[in-house]
């Protein structure tokens, strides 16, 4: 808050003048942003007119501009379709569970990994932990299904060993969503930890030294030095994660689910995918995408506003 610019009580003319002086002083910074902004304009803003087809009956021959408006038909269709509403509910439930359970996991993973003193062990573990991120769900799903198989799966092996009846976990409504959460965490925890490890790496060692001098123990340092230092990164990651709340993991679910668990596992993306199988409907799909993004941006704005009230970290 060093500049006059943000002070509301300044008079308009003075404000304008101060702004101008400041802009001149910082012209180098504007110049830096110029090329990225031009690129963004060309490759993102120019094609943005494509959003219009969400409100049209798109006809390829007429093109995006000349296709007829359809009076929000696609959106009416969405909200009159009980299966879409069910998918919306499932998406939110799965996504929220993932945010609550999966989001914190890499943070804990990174903080605990940081406590390991043996550098070599640390490096090797880290390199291994991010391997599953590169495996496609097409491959992984086969293994997940095997692990939970009623006939060959290891879990059912133990269940039957102790006299229980095997459970078909992947076809069971109560166990399917927990499996989604668990396998997602397993696949992404190491990959997700990278950004936090990067943040931890840049913590000023003097902070630890100071804490030690105050007699802080290990856990005390974790909670009172490491965690607060990476908090800005955690917050920004959290806000951005909220923005994609309506993406609950299309690839994962598509490869793992079956009609028996549609009730809890059919999400917006899988439902739209199945609906579009026969004939790809660009206009309808764009409407769904637009809906998802609007929800995302509303959540980001809200979360940002709330967080800004409590701290100075946030997107702006």
């Amino acid at each position: 808050m060093q500049t006059a610019l943000q002070k509301a009580e300044t008079t308009p003319e003075r404000k304008t003048k101060a702004t101008w002086v400041q802009m001149k002083k910082m012209k180098g910074l504007y110049f830096m942003m110029l090329i990225p902004m031009v690129m963004l304009f060309i490759f993102h803003y120019i094609p943005m007119y494509g959003i219009l087809i969400a409100f049209k009956n798109f006809s390829p021959g007429l093109g995006i501009w000349d296709s007829p408006w359809n009076n929000f038909e696609h959106f009416k269709r969405l909200f009159s379709d009980f299966l879409f509403l069910r998918a919306l509910k499932n998406t939110i439930v799965i996504s929220l569970l993932k945010i609550v359970i999966v989001f914190p996991a890499p943070i804990i993973f990174a903080i605990l990994l940081n406590e390991i003193k043996n550098e070599k062990f640390k490096k090797v573990t880290q390199s291994i932990s991010y391997l599953p991120h590169f495996m496609s769900w097409v491959i992984l799903s086969a293994m997940v299904i095997e692990v939970f198989s009623p006939q060959r799966g290891i879990i059912n092996f133990f269940i039957t060993l102790f006299g229980g009846d095997p459970i078909n976990f992947m076809a069971d409504k109560t166990s399917f969503v927990p499996i989604l959460i668990l396998t997602d965490m397993w696949k992404e925890i190491g990959w997700g930890a990278i950004i936090y490890l990067a943040s931890i790496a840049s913590i000023d060692p003097q902070l630890y030294e100071a804490a030690e001098m105050d007699g802080a123990g290990r856990f005390h340092k974790m909670i009172h030095v490491t965690l607060p230092s990476i908090m800005p990164m955690v917050i920004i990651m959290f806000i951005l994660r909220l923005g994609s709340i309506l993406n609950a993991g299309f690839d994962q679910i598509l490869n793992l689910y079956n009609p028996l668990v549609y009730e809890v596992a059919d999400i917006i993306d899988t439902y739209v995918y199945r609906s579009g199988l026969e004939q790809f409907q660009f206009d309808y799909a764009t409407a769904v995408g637009l809906f998802k993004n609007v929800v995302g941006i509303v959540l980001i704005l809200t979360a940002n506003a709330i967080i800004r009230r409590k701290s100075e970290h946030g997107i702006w």
């Binding site: 076809a171 009609p259 549609y262």
Partner: peptide, 24 residues
């Protein structure tokens, strides 16, 4: 009609078929 309702109808049918067979 199939473009408009195909996804819904297939989902209803598939889900019922599976649930019916396994006795759900």
């Amino acid at each position: 009609l199939s473009k408009r309702y195909g996804g819904q109808l297939t989902t209803i049918v598939d889900e019922f078929r599976m649930k019916a067979i396994v006795g759900e």
